[in-house]
Structures are given as structure tokens and as C-alpha cells.
């Protein structure tokens, strides 16, 4: 199965967006959009850990950074689409909301979900990043040399 197809890329983007969303936000947007589709669990929300790997050194060799708590969930809509959600921390509701969004994105409601849930989430994220970058920018120090009074 090829992994780097455009469809998979798009799905990776929205799953990543859902995984980074703050606690409760995806579920809240889903509720605001008035979406509560029927579904059944394939894998009820469960908490576990994943090993995070990083790269370091000149050659970029991988190393195990440490374990992180994640919550995952898989479900199937009444119409048959299967959605998966993985989020950081112990957040059963968020994992379920992420899986729901993932499943709904495969239905005819994709455009609506994109508008009501994913776009606000990315906008949030953009705001967070800008704010953080702004804060970091304030701490920037411009080094320069005063005239050293050698006259």
C-alpha cells in the first residue's frame, strides 16, 4: 500500500491538526456544527504510551527520546466510514472527537467539517504560533558595540 499518496497526505494533515488541538476544542467545534452522527466503536478510547524518537548527531542517527502518554480511538459511522484518532495525554473525549472528524471527512460532509471544525482549528493553531513567535521576538536582543571611548 503506497503511503505517500495525496489523499494520505491530506488525511495526515487533518489528523495532525486534531492531535495538536487544545483539550476539548475539537469536540466543542463538532457540537457547534450540530454534528452528532451515530457510530460504533471498533476500539473504544484507550490510554497507552508511545516511544518518541528524535534525531541527533552529525549523521542524524535516531534515538529514543522518551515515552509519551497518548489516547487513541477507532470507530465506524452508521454509514460505514472508519475513523481513527490519536491525541496526546489522557483525553478520551478528544480521541473520540478526532476519530469522528476523521470518519466524517470521508463522507459527503467533508466540506462542512473542513469549514466548521478543521479551518477554525488551523486558525487557532496559527494564532497560537504567531503569539508564541511574537513573545519570542520580544526577547530578542540586538547586540552592538558602543563607542569604546578611546579618543
Amino acid at each position: 500500500m503506497p503511503l505517500n499518496t495525496p489523499e494520505n497526505g491530506a488525511r495526515r494533515d487533518w489528523l495532525g491538526c486534531l492531535a495538536r488541538a487544545p483539550e476539548g476544542r475539537a469536540a466543542q467545534l463538532l457540537a457547534l456544527a450540530g454534528l452528532a452522527p451515530e457510530f460504533e466503536y471498533l476500539r473504544p478510547p484507550e490510554i497507552g504510551s508511545v516511544m518518541l524518537r528524535g534525531r541527533m548527531g552529525g549523521s542524524g542517527g535516531p534515538f529514543n527520546l522518551g515515552e509519551m502518554t497518548v489516547t487513541r480511538c477507532s470507530l465506524k459511522l452508521a454509514s460505514g466510514e472508519v475513523g481513527h484518532g490519536y491525541v496526546q495525554g489522557r483525553r478520551r473525549d478528544d480521541a473520540q472527537a478526532a476519530a469522528l472528524v476523521d470518519a466524517l471527512m470521508q463522507t459527503g460532509m467533508a466540506a462542512r467539517i473542513r469549514r466548521d471544525v478543521l479551518d477554525p482549528l488551523s486558525a487557532d493553531e496559527q494564532t497560537r504560533r504567531t503569539a508564541r513567535a511574537g513573545k519570542a521576538a520580544q526577547t530578542k536582543v540586538e547586540f552592538f558595540t558602543m563607542v569604546r571611548g578611546e579618543d
Partner: peptide
Amino acid sequence: MDDLTLAGGFSDPA
């Protein structure tokens, strides 16, 4: 993917 293969797991794994 056939969804039958995804069903039939534990409903309360722990």
C-alpha cells in the same frame, strides 16, 4: 478495507 475485519475486538479491553 472490509469493515468486518475491524469489528469483533474487545469492547472494554482492560
